[in-house]
Computed example of a mutant assay.
Amino acid sequence: MATGHTDPQRRDRIIAATLDLIAEEGLAGVSHRKIAARAGVPLGSMTYHFSGIDQLLREAFGRFTDHIVAVFDAYLSTPTDRDQARTAVAELVHALSEGPQRDLVLTQELYTLAARQPDYRELTHEWMRRSRTHLEQHFDPDTARQLDALIEGLTLHRALAREPHDRALTLEAIARITATEKRAP
């Protein structure tokens, strides 16, 4: 294995291994030793690249939230009218709920961490702000806030339901929230 100076991907492998470990074992299963083994790096390189587990978790969850915001962007950057935007939001809900179980688990692990440790709430606040920015391309800020919460709730319900609701119900919920939307001047 190359040294830290000649292995520019080492830091990225550590972050990726951290997210994989959290997804598989939860935050309680995370340790420097387990992450180093999973990343295939010497244990000493953990402290070379990160000041501690807190910095590593912040960066790992930051990378994860970047990934989810990119998913929002993929769905919400192309609609040209409100009906297309409503359909795009429904498609986003279904993509997130039918997507990798890993993303669902990481989302819940981050929410739990933020609920217990206020310092991590900044990550979730920034994530929500960035998500709403995508929604605000098509809806007023209050409606975007409601849609953001709806997306998260419907995604979780669909992902965990024995018989997930269909797109028609998702579209109906979106239509109800956006029906009384304030019009921009």
Results as ranks from 00 to 15, higher is better:
residue 51 S to P: 06
residue 51 S to D: 14
residue 51 S to F: 10
residue 52 G to C: 11
residue 52 G to N: 15
residue 53 I to L: 15
residue 53 I to S: 12
residue 53 I to V: 14
residue 53 I to G: 10
residue 54 D to T: 13
residue 55 Q to P: 02
residue 55 Q to L: 10
residue 56 L to E: 01
residue 56 L to Q: 02
residue 56 L to K: 01
residue 56 L to H: 01
residue 57 L to Q: 09
residue 57 L to V: 09
residue 57 L to E: 05
residue 57 L to T: 06
residue 58 R to Y: 06
residue 58 R to H: 09
residue 58 R to W: 05
residue 58 R to N: 05
residue 59 E to R: 10
residue 59 E to L: 13
residue 59 E to A: 06
residue 59 E to G: 04
residue 59 E to P: 04
residue 60 A to H: 02
residue 60 A to K: 02
residue 62 G to M: 12
residue 62 G to S: 15
residue 63 R to G: 11
residue 63 R to M: 11
residue 63 R to F: 08
residue 63 R to C: 07
residue 64 F to S: 02
residue 65 T to E: 09
residue 65 T to Y: 08
residue 65 T to W: 07
residue 65 T to L: 09
residue 66 D to L: 12
residue 66 D to E: 15
residue 67 H to L: 12
residue 67 H to Y: 12
residue 67 H to A: 08
residue 67 H to V: 08
residue 67 H to D: 10
residue 68 I to E: 07
residue 68 I to P: 01
residue 68 I to K: 04
residue 68 I to Q: 05
residue 68 I to D: 02
residue 69 V to E: 04
residue 69 V to R: 02
residue 69 V to K: 01
residue 69 V to D: 04
residue 69 V to A: 04
residue 70 A to R: 12
residue 70 A to S: 15
residue 70 A to C: 09
residue 70 A to K: 11
residue 71 V to N: 02
residue 71 V to M: 09
residue 71 V to C: 07
residue 71 V to S: 04
residue 71 V to Q: 07
residue 72 F to T: 01
residue 72 F to C: 03
residue 72 F to E: 03
residue 73 D to M: 11
residue 73 D to I: 10
residue 74 A to G: 12
residue 75 Y to A: 08
residue 75 Y to E: 11
residue 76 L to E: 01
residue 76 L to R: 00
residue 76 L to W: 00
residue 76 L to A: 01
residue 77 S to L: 07
residue 77 S to I: 05
residue 78 T to H: 14
residue 79 P to C: 04
residue 79 P to V: 04
residue 80 T to C: 09
residue 81 D to M: 02
residue 82 R to Q: 12
residue 82 R to G: 05
residue 82 R to I: 11
residue 82 R to L: 11
residue 82 R to M: 08
residue 82 R to A: 11
residue 82 R to S: 09
residue 83 D to R: 05
residue 83 D to P: 00
residue 83 D to C: 01
residue 83 D to G: 00
residue 83 D to F: 03
residue 83 D to T: 04
residue 83 D to A: 08
residue 84 Q to G: 15
residue 84 Q to P: 08
residue 84 Q to K: 14
residue 84 Q to E: 15
residue 84 Q to I: 10
residue 86 R to L: 01
residue 86 R to A: 01
residue 86 R to V: 00
residue 87 T to H: 13
residue 87 T to I: 13
residue 87 T to S: 14
residue 87 T to E: 15
residue 88 A to S: 13
residue 88 A to P: 06
residue 88 A to D: 07
residue 88 A to Q: 07
residue 89 V to Q: 07
residue 89 V to S: 06
